[in-house]
Design a protein around this nucleic acid. Structure first.
Lengths: 151, 151
DNA sequence: TCTTGAACCTCTAGTTACTAGAGGATGTAA
DNA sequence: TTACATCCTCTAGTAACTAGAGGTTCAAGA
């Protein structure tokens, strides 16, 4: 029997975040004591640990919701679970490619700066003219820029 | 003299995004024709290209705002600009480290899955128990998870 | 000149995964 | 009993846009 604060301490998930997960239906509504405060058991703790770990691996909450639902049916094939995991892997790989390109370009830009005045600043020049780049970081659409929030 | 649509086509920035940049003061308010439609010149185009390129390199809009302000004063030292670029580089590096850890762990997890039933699914097991990980992906705080949106 | 369809306008609300804060109730240790 | 920590609900804010409603203007063809 755990208060929300204890649960938070045990799982590393902040108290408001736990309430948020409950609000969006990721965690079931827990029992309450006479005063109306939430009380949790070990099942909640395990579920929250699962969520936290999946979040750490970059899974979006909607995927986690699915993973939890799928894991509730132990005799089913784990194909769907694998598919979700593979999609997440692909997403991470996509982002790695892109981040590596950014990294390279940022390093190059900074290395070339002679640190004089703004007028001759290489950083400003490069930002103003993509032609000065090695051009490999433009392998993404505007959709990619948005999607950066996903992991 | 460009309509917002032409400017969009030339820069690769979507029409609503251009209006959004104007709204938040990143782009100056352009002239209007008699009908009230926006008309742009090459200065706007350059500024928008600058913004787009900086966004592609992962700079947040607030940093871009600063970069633009700094670049308007050509005789100043470019120290502040360099500092922003270096901060961005550090951010990207931080994210790369983390993404690499995620990638490794996801791959390991997927490789170990024998693709049977949910009951024996390695993916579910690992997600439920961080002890089964090689533990190197937990090198971040909850603040890091949030911050993932920054690039 | 008229018409039609594309492109434009403003405004509000939605997205993700939370966090912050207000204003108040409850639990616990001295 | 008295602090004080912890809990409660609720609303609003974050980044960087996107989507859609409902209406106006522009440009080209008949």
């Amino acid at each position: 029997m755990l208060s929300i604060g204890k649960l938070s301490g045990l799982t590393g998930v902040k108290v408001p975040t736990i309430r948020y997960y409950e609000q969006i239906g990721l965690l079931p509504k827990p029992e309450r004591n006479e005063g109306g405060q939430r009380i949790y058991d070990n099942t909640s703790r395990e579920r929250l640990n699962f969520i936290r770990h999946a979040r750490e691996l970059g899974f979006p909450l909607d995927d986690i919701r699915e993973l939890l639902a799928l894991s509730d049916d132990p005799d089913q094939s784990c194909e769907a679970i694998d598919a979700l995991a593979k999609r997440q892997l692909a997403e991470v790989e996509h982002r790695l490619v892109r981040l590596n390109a950014l990294h390279k370009e940022l390093e190059r830009m900074i290395a070339q700066c002679t640190c004089g005045t703004v007028q001759t600043c290489r950083v400003i020049q490069v930002l103003g003219d993509h032609g000065l780049c090695e051009a490999d970081h433009r392998t993404m659409t505007s959709h990619d820029i948005e999607r950066e929030c996903l992991t």
